[in-house]
Design a protein around this nucleic acid. Structure first.
Lengths: 131, 131
DNA sequence: TCTGGGACCTCAAGTAGGTTGAGGTTCAAG
DNA sequence: CTTGAACCTCAACCTACTTGAGGTCCCAGA
């Protein structure tokens, strides 16, 4: 049993974000103390961590909501599996794109460091990137 | 010389986005025909592509604006280089995180495919992700 | 027991980075 | 000369939060 502040810290997000998720129906309405303060337990934390993890993948809130409903239903793998396969494919594309960019930057930075130091001419990295 | 539609297609973005960038001062005020239609040339395209590339890296518009100003000044490498080094570091962290997630998903999906088909029990991928 | 400051509450407004829509002009192919 | 795609402006909407105002609650130390 812990407070919203502790929950947020454990899930690596902000307190208002937790309240926002509750308002949006992603987190269930939290139990309250007499005072009105929200109280959470382990399953709540698990759910929040899952939401954050999916958000890191840029899965929209609506989609996460649908998935959580699916999970709650204890449905068989098939649907869920398909979703995560798509997700994984998206991740892989993104990794490829990032690697490509990393390479471009690295190559150019090597060039630049040897070619235009000490503070001699303008940097043409912009030209390289927009090519 | 081309129209906003052609420009947008070449830079892989939408027409309203181009206008939005102009309004925000990221793209210079475009030249116009008598009719009021915007006209663009190669340097405009280069600039737009650069903006898009930086946006793909989640660089905020304000930061891009500052960089473009820096570029226009023909400043020496040092500052620019530092920026791109930071950017590259961010990319690498992101790649690591994504790879980690990919691995987690892949391992679990392999499990799942052998363990709970044909449509037998519920999928525990949610538990795995929120652990 | 009192007190101060941090953590909590609600509700409203603001933010980034666009997208969408209404209502209207212009261009170019047939 | 028409008609449909592409352009124009301006305003409203969108997602996913963040920030702020104004107020209550909790708890450790004096």
């Amino acid at each position: 049993m812990f407070t919203i502040g502790v929950l947020a810290r454990k899930a690596q997000c902000s307190v208002p974000t937790v309240r926002f998720y509750e308002a949006q129906g992603l987190m269930p309405p939290a139990e309250r103390r007499e005072s009105g303060h929200r109280v959470y337990d382990r399953p709540d934390l698990a759910r929040l961590v899952l939401i954050r993890r999916l958000r890191d993948l840029d899965v929209p809130l609506e989609r996460i909501k649908a998935l959580l409903k699916l999970d709650a239903g204890g449905k068989p793998c098939a649907e869920t599996l398909r979703f995560f396969q798509e997700q994984r494919d998206a991740i892989r594309l993104r990794i490829e794109a990032l690697r490509d960019l990393d390479l471009t930057l690295s190559m150019h930075m090597a060039n630049c460091q040897s070619g235009c130091l000490p503070a001699a001419g303008p940097c043409d990295i912009f030209g390289v990137l927009s090519a």
